[in-house]
Amino acid sequence: MSRVSLEGRVAVVTGAARGVGELMARKLSARGVKVALVGLEPDELKQVSARLHSDSDHWHADVTDHEAMARVAAEVKERFGKVDIVVANAGVATGGPFVESDPESWRRVIEVNLIGSAVTARAFLPALLESRGYLLQIASLAALTPAPMMSAYCASKSGVEAYAHSLRGEVGHRGVKVGVGYLSWTDTDMVRGADQDDVMRELRQRLPWPSNKTYPLGPAVDRLVEGVERRSAHVYGQWWLRGMQGVRGYLPAVIGTVGQREMRRFGDRLEGLRTGLVGAGGAADEQRPTSATTVRK
């Protein structure tokens, strides 16, 4: 599939204060894209915006809030005149045994990763239909295979994958392309936050190669940007993830067997495992205002 020039296009990136979203914004901006940054950390968003090469602006909003995101969409359209690209990247994570998990943190992962992605699409689809644009939904290796101690994250990423596939079939005839981006463990605040717990770090290190590695952020985001340029249906942040599609049907049974063995191995060490949201982004989400706000530069 040939690439299209991104020069002069307008992109919205959620979860843009750090990690994948921040680097996506920078790399899109370097290609001449005007970028609207959306997230929960206004100071960080302002700093990211100031470093971009092209025209940009930022909005402080909770992606799970329908009214806030509708206002953001209207203001982005007013500010830039159009929207060509939406990268639904905002996400949080928690880990640990489901039976001992914090119900609010577990629910929040589903709300941000799945509901927030749908709210984002609902807000911006009218503009994408006008521009015959492209929506890239960021999913994960967690959408391809289940993993013990990650029930909320796996459920949310499986959900956004299925939702994005469904949406692709609905809007394709109207010129809007929908892609799903898959990432393995990538060097972000979220992954580093999860690794602060000894048990979660050791469990991840015991995964089979190549899923037990932490991959550099830059090459993964380069692949995502190439997916935007090609308006791809599937984008893989690490080369080997494409091959997982062919074996994913066998993985639940394998993980179910291997997972039992690993849970026995760690035994009593699982007691008292922290189950809140991980990383700096998780901390920002836990400190979010209870009422929706949108703040522009």
Rank of each mutant, 00 (worst) to 15 (best):
P146W: 05
G159P: 14
A152N: 04
A152P: 02
S140T: 03
K157V: 03
L135D: 12
V92A: 06
S131V: 06
Y163W: 15
C154D: 06
A88T: 09
T94F: 02
L128V: 07
A142C: 00
I115K: 11
V83E: 09
L125C: 11
S166Q: 10
H173Q: 13
W106I: 00
K177S: 15
L128I: 12
V92F: 02
L183W: 02
E161Q: 13
C154N: 02
A143P: 01
A118I: 13
P97R: 02
T186V: 15
F124E: 08
G116H: 05
S158N: 09
E130S: 13
S117D: 07
I85S: 09
A143N: 05
A93H: 01
E111Q: 13
V112Q: 05
P148H: 13
G133P: 06
S151A: 15
A118K: 06
V99H: 08
V160E: 04
L129C: 13
F124L: 12
G172F: 11
G169N: 12
R108L: 07
L144T: 02
V76L: 02
R174G: 08
K77S: 10
P126K: 13
L129N: 14
T120Y: 13
I115P: 04
M149C: 03
F98G: 11
D84P: 08
R168P: 09
D102M: 02
V76C: 10
A127V: 09
Y134K: 06
L135E: 12
V92C: 04
V178K: 01
G179R: 10
A162V: 13
A143F: 07
H165N: 11
E170M: 13
F80E: 07
A162Y: 09
I138D: 03
W185V: 07
A152H: 04
G172E: 12
R132T: 09
P97I: 02
S158V: 06
A88P: 08
V180L: 10
I85M: 05
M149Q: 04
I115W: 10
G179V: 07
V176T: 10
L183V: 06
A88Y: 03
A155N: 03
L141P: 00
V99A: 12
W106H: 07
L128M: 13
H165C: 09
S184A: 15
N113F: 07
S101C: 10
V176P: 06
L144Q: 02
A93W: 00
E104W: 05
F124M: 14
S140R: 04
G169T: 10
L144I: 01
A162E: 12
H165S: 08
L136S: 02
A164R: 13
L144C: 12
W185S: 14
Q137C: 15
E100V: 05
V92G: 03
G81F: 09
G91C: 00
V86Y: 04
Q137F: 14
S166I: 11
A139C: 09
I85V: 14
D187R: 15
L129W: 10
M150D: 03
L125T: 11
G172M: 08
G133H: 08
W106E: 05
A90N: 01
D102R: 04
L144A: 01
E111D: 15
E100I: 00
M149D: 00
G133S: 11
G175R: 07
G175K: 08
E78I: 03
G95H: 03
L144M: 14
F98H: 01
